[in-house]
């Protein structure tokens, strides 16, 4: 069966150990977490975890099964094949060195990148998009000399309610 990336949305009770339980059961059973995003929902006592992992359908079913066994897990949904939107966010610092300065300014204009800090020596960009958009942006950013970068895990929203 075909292996591919799955985006799994998990609603959990916001307890101190809940992330350790999820990471523990998946790690302990030999499954890998590719990316992870966690935060409280509008109710403080409920958190949403969005996790990506790679596997075939069988593996993903087992992962979901293991997650559902956890007492603090309320709901598990695979958002991969339902109508949903996916976003990642990156923060990128580009140093405005003499040789790159003009090239960077031009790229920012052409690509309509969002500048959130503009200093003499560097700029910081905030970019969001789905995985392919972020990868596309990264390919364009790389020649400009990325001084530092941080990338979130995937967040996703189910449109299929």
């Amino acid at each position: 069966m075909e292996k591919k990336e799955h985006i799994i949305s998990i609603l959990v009770h916001n307890k101190p150990d809940v992330l350790a339980r999820i990471a523990g059961i998946l790690g302990g059973k030999g499954y890998n977490i590719e990316s992870l995003c966690v935060n409280a929902t509008t109710q403080y006592e409920v958190s949403k975890i969005v996790m990506t992992t790679i596997g075939n359908k069988e593996t993903i079913n087992r992962i979901e099964g293991q997650l559902r066994r956890l007492v603090d897990v309320i709901q598990v949904d695979d958002l991969t094949n339902v109508e949903s939107i996916h976003r990642e966010l990156i923060l990128v610092r580009l140093n405005l060195t003499a040789d790159k300065k003009e090239q960077i300014k031009k790229a920012v204009d052409t690509n309509k990148w969002k500048v959130i800090v503009s200093a003499d020596a560097y700029i910081v960009l905030e970019l969001t998009g789905d995985k392919s958009q972020i990868d596309f942006a990264l390919a364009r950013l790389e020649p400009l000399g990325i001084a530092d970068i941080t990338r979130t895990g995937v967040v996703a929203l189910d449109l299929d309610d």
């Binding site: 069988e58 079913n61 087992r62 099964g65 293991q66 559902r68 066994r69």
Partner: peptide
Amino acid sequence: IDPSSINK
């Protein structure tokens, strides 16, 4: 009773 046991 345990769905995670099925097809495991």
